[in-house]
Amino acid sequence: MQVTMTVNGETQSHDVEARMLLVYYLREVLGLTGTNVGCDTTSCGACTVLLNGESVKSCTMLAAQADGEEITTIEGMASSEGVLHPIQEAFREHHGLQCGYCTPGMVMAVASFLKEHPDPTEAEVREGLEGNLCRCTGYHNIVQATLAAARAGALAP
């Protein structure tokens, strides 16, 4: 079936299998491999992208369900000149990543969270990110990075 959507500002249109998940459309059809797959049960959040500016887990959504919608992936966060988004910069500044596998999904989740909670408490950050698992950082520095990004006024693009 034919799907058409805007991904990182560009219109994409492809014929895909009806059962194709959004994450595999992004990864395999569009070659946007920054979005990772970490589980099969919508638990880990590694595949988080923005759907019309709100975070969704792209492993739990068919590509067909995104037809006509606007998707932002991690590749769409830095500027076209390669300048990191303030959230990405905050993750680097605060050592909010180690192996990096959960990071793209975590950054997208933070982008969506900060849009709704521009001035969050630590407890709100921890609750807000509970859908994204990280095995390396113990979350401490992810929380610090998120609070710092909020202070810097980093809203989603």
């Binding site: 990864r27 070659g31 946007l32 491999t33 920054g34 979005t35 990772n36 797959v37 992936t73 991690i74 590749e75 966060m77 830095a78 390669g82 990191l84 990405q88 993750f91 680097r92 500044e93 050592h95 990543l97 192996c99 990096g100 596998y101 990071t103 793209p104 950054v107």
Partner: peptide
């Protein structure tokens, strides 16, 4: 010192084995 690994990991450009074409 901030990590040198991070820009590639943060921008989605890092390649894990599942990403290889």
């Amino acid at each position: 010192m901030r990590r040198r690994e991070d820009p590639a990991l943060l921008s989605g450009e890092a390649r894990y084995v599942h990403d290889l074409v």
